[in-house]
């Protein structure tokens, strides 16, 4: 391979006073990567049941400056989104992730203009599902895929994320386990050890403190992040 590569690796080994790792030394590290173990995890979410996790999530979402709506079923979601847009004085149109096209029945919100796909920057509001929600910190995990394009998470001014209660986990490590399990099941080992192109961990709406350290929402990404937690 390239000589720069060999020289850098050689320089590292020289500084460390050894050659390339072999035998049991290398095998041990291969095992550490193949079966990742967890480090210290904060107690914060330990032992919480489903309700407890949902409560912790909602509290943390609030701290991260999200607005939250809790509903009993997916059927209620379109109406609640329409009501939220109205409350916030936002136009009644949105773009939804293809993944939600079959799950959300917009006939109950007939005045809403709905398109499906990714965002091109002209949309005011997007609606997406999530892959998991981390109760520890109020963090949403979203994966890029054809039915869940990443543009929806960043380009519109307002982002509505639909979280099912069964997707709520305690610490971030639980979300990684869930991701590894899902990718193994899908047999997606070919690309990037099963990682989708993008994994977004999102904790609240976009902000900046670059003007005299005063926090402003909506720097480049969404100004508002509205989370709908659905009992499922």
């Amino acid at each position: 391979m390239s000589s720069a590569r060999d020289q850098i690796l050689g320089s590292i080994r020289k500084s460390l006073g050894r050659g390339a790792l072999e035998g049991e030394d290398a095998a041990r590290l291969h095992r550490r990567l193949a079966t990742p173990s967890r480090n210290l995890i904060p107690d914060r979410t330990a032992g919480l049941d489903r309700d407890g996790l949902a409560r912790q999530l909602v509290g943390k979402l609030g701290e991260a400056a999200c607005s939250v709506d809790e509903v009993a079923s997916m059927a209620e979601v379109p109406g609640r989104i329409a009501a939220w847009l109205q409350r916030e004085n936002l136009p009644a149109r949105l773009v939804q992730a293809p993944a939600l096209a079959n799950g959300l029945d917009w006939s109950k919100a007939p005045t809403m203009e709905v398109k499906t796909g990714t965002a091109d920057g002209s949309e005011d509001t997007s609606v997406t599902p999530v892959f998991a929600a981390v109760a520890e910190t109020g963090t949403l995990m979203l994966l890029s895929d054809a039915p869940t394009p990443t543009g929806l998470n960043f380009l519109p001014e307002n982002h509505v994320a639909v979280v099912r209660r069964s997707q709520v986990v305690g610490p971030l490590e639980d979300a990684w386990s869930k991701l590894r399990a899902a990718r193994a099941e899908a047999g997606a080992a070919a690309a990037g050890a099963g990682m989708p192109r993008t994994v977004n961990l999102i904790t609240g709406p976009s902000r900046t403190g670059d003007i005299e350290q005063r926090i402003q929402m909506g720097a480049h990404g969404p100004r508002r992040l509205h989370v709908i937690v659905v009992d499922d």
């Binding site: 910190t137 109020g138 990682m195 993008t198 961990l201 904790t203 976009s206 902000r207």
Partner: peptide, 8 residues
């Protein structure tokens, strides 16, 4: 606790 966007 977390920055807004952590992207892999």
């Amino acid at each position: 606790e977390m920055s807004v966007y952590t992207t892999f």
